[in-house]
Simulated assay, not measured.
Amino acid sequence: MKLTRFAQLGAVAAVAALALAGCSSGSTAGSSAAPSSSSSAASDEVAATIDTSGTGTLTAGGSSAQGNAQNAWISAYKAQVAGVTVNYDQSQGSGGGVTNFLSGAYDFAGSDSPLKADQTEQSQALCEGGINIPVYLDGVSIIYNVEGVTDLKLSGATIAKIFNLQITDWSDPAITADNGTALPAGAITTVVRSDGSGTTQNFTNYLAAAQTTDWPYPAANAWPVTGNVSAQKGGSGVVNTVTSGANTIGYADHSAIGDLSSVAIIQDGTPIEFSPDAVAATFTAAAVDASNGVTGDLSKKFDYSKLTAETYPIPLASYAVVCSTFKDADQAALTKSYLSFVTSTDGQAIAAKNAGSAPLPTEILEAAQESIAAIK
């Protein structure tokens, strides 16, 4: 077995990943790498030890939010472990990824929310309990396409009313008040996800917790509002519909929005645009432990009462959902090797470059490495 610390190979891996910059559909990261200050979230070296002589195939899928990062991770990993093929299907969305994981079809799933209690219970029979390991930190962007508008500010209350179909025209007084000027009149087309989505889960987590006056629905991975909405499958479906439409608004993981404009969300009187720095600040300030009780689980939830004028209000922490015990030792070894790379400092830097995400804090990466090492 040929073992090497991935950090020693970081330059080669980075070259492989950088070649992907801008190549993934909808990616904006090739032209907007994470600001240097955001890299301090994982500034200390967390190196992965991988078996470069491994062979086999990993089958995974789920979160479309992770899609650009997964493409870059897979390319960089393949450059060093030529005998391993990693297949990641992002068309499933988080809901489909978890379903396939629980059926035994996936070695791991990408999910923008941890396993629910009933899913954790179901995983006990599959593999003595599934664990959720943070691998990706980004934000949900509110995207729009309104002719002549390139700078849009909206409060959380206004966003809730728009997506709850209580505000239906761009000339509404609430939108005017948020921006200090009136926008041209035009009926709003609200674009949402039609499939089970972790992006929907994270968006409604924020609405249900932080906008209780204007959002009467519980958080969920299925869009709860019926009526005059345009429902589309996958983050790409939402982005494409907002792009091709007029007077449209929707939501998507920031890495997937391409050239679309995104809303500066007003928090404590300050318009906050998405940035890796701002979402890293959110994680530091508001992420709290939410373990599912399985040894090695690293689930988090956000306490939105801790948001400040320096934090991006709608964070998205995404996970690798993986068995704590595998039935096949070879698949366990391959999965551990790949996820160890993903949660290394090099892996996080590659995601930041190619998906515009924020590196996870060093203490989270260290805990992830420990949890991955303990997988049997």
Score class of each variant (00 low, 15 high):
V294E: 00
W215P: 01
A333C: 04
L18S: 13
A309F: 15
I272Q: 13
I74A: 02
A72S: 13
A109R: 03
S103K: 11
G296K: 08
V98I: 14
I162E: 02
T189F: 10
E128S: 15
E370P: 00
S305Y: 03
V322R: 03
S305F: 03
A355V: 04
N179H: 12
A278E: 09
V239A: 05
A48S: 11
N221P: 00
A287T: 05
S37E: 15
G347H: 08
A14C: 03
T343V: 10
F108E: 01
I143Q: 07
G227Q: 11
I257N: 04
T189N: 13
K233Q: 15
D297M: 05
Y319E: 03
A17H: 02
L137R: 02
V321C: 05
L307P: 01
I350R: 00
L58K: 01
S103E: 08
L183H: 02
E310L: 14
T59A: 06
A286K: 07
L137H: 04
G30E: 08
Q66K: 07
T199Q: 12
S75A: 15
V192M: 08
A60F: 02
E366H: 00
S103Y: 04
D214P: 06
G237D: 04
T57F: 00
W215K: 09
E45N: 09
Y77A: 03
P218T: 09
L154C: 03
W223R: 04
L334I: 03
F203W: 12
